[in-house]
Design a binder for these strands. Structure first.
Length: 268
DNA sequence: ATGCCCCATTAAATGGGA
């Protein structure tokens, strides 16, 4: 059976629940992973997901900041919420999705943005981001996160490739594209042997973005995007990878998120 | 080559995003 998994940094799930409903209706993914839900679990708009045909929810939220959630048409065998760097700041949730006779671990991550200054000595947010990536690599290796059928998706807040940003040269010293982040990002991916399935569809020498700043006068015309959102598949699941779509049009919807959803389809 | 914009909280700023 085909299994469609979507990831979307929604930038407030309560404010944009109508956009979520539209996306679910139009694209009908089996599983939707959200980041930056920005609400505590009690305030999560559960009823809207139920009404849209997504009765299974794994939520890890908090008041105001961050927050992740997984909504699914398929049942969960298990849910986990992991804290990183000694904080419980709602940046990870995992749901093991029962898809046919397979069980797929869906890890949904929101990596810290890292602030402005790319120097851990003077910017604690950047130091936290680097520590977070180091801890991710250690966790993936120690717990063999990618040993079975697994995906790791989310807003990973790193644009690793030259063509994951609008200008490699202009952004080399900008947080999300600095060499130290890119190197650590590669270590996280390698820790699980994860495959970057987005780049199987759009080759590395072509521009590929999932985020466009709110600050540009005309986001489409300026097209100064970044690929901050990722879909990684474990080696076993990647054997069934079929296709991937970046839903760029949603950036032009009314009151949009600055990120657009990405869907990936796997045969399981 | 950035921009000058969004969101949530709590009450006209502030912190965070990236």
């Amino acid at each position: 059976m085909p299994l469609t998994i979507a990831t979307w940094n929604i930038n407030s799930v309560r404010l944009r629940i109508a956009l979520v409903e539209r996306f679910l209706k139009e694209e009908a993914p089996d599983v939707l992973c959200l980041q930056e839900t920005k609400c505590c679990d009690e305030a999560f708009p559960v009823a809207a997901f139920h009404a849209a045909g997504y009765p299974h929810l794994a939520i890890n939220g908090q008041k105001g900041y961050h927050g992740v959630a997984i909504a699914s048409r398929l049942p969960f065998a298990r849910i986990e919420r992991r804290g990183f760097c000694g904080k419980n700041d709602a940046r990870h949730v995992m749901a093991q999705v029962e898809a046919g006779n397979r069980a797929v671990d869906v890890h949904n991550l929101y990596v810290p943005a890292g602030g402005d200054e790319p120097d851990p000595a003077i910017n604690p947010k950047f130091a936290h981001k680097l520590d977070f990536l180091r801890e991710m690599a250690a966790w993936i290796e120690r717990d063999a996160v990618a040993s079975g059928d697994a995906v790791l998706v989310g807003d990973l807040n790193v644009s690793p490739g030259e063509h994951d940003v609008w200008s490699h040269r202009a952004l080399l010293n900008t947080v999300c594209h600095t060499p130290v982040e890119v190197e650590l990002f590669g270590r996280v991916q390698a820790a699980g042997g994860f495959l970057d399935v987005m780049r199987r569809v759009i080759p590395p020498h072509e521009k590929c973005y999932t985020w466009w700043s709110y600050r540009a006068a005309d986001w489409l015309k300026a097209d100064r995007g970044r690929r901050l959102d990722h879909v990684w598949a474990s080696p076993r699941l990647a054997q069934g990878f079929r296709t991937m779509t970046i839903h760029k049009a949603s950036r032009g919807w009314e009151r949009p998120s600055d990120h657009v959803p990405v869907t990936a389809v796997f045969a399981v």
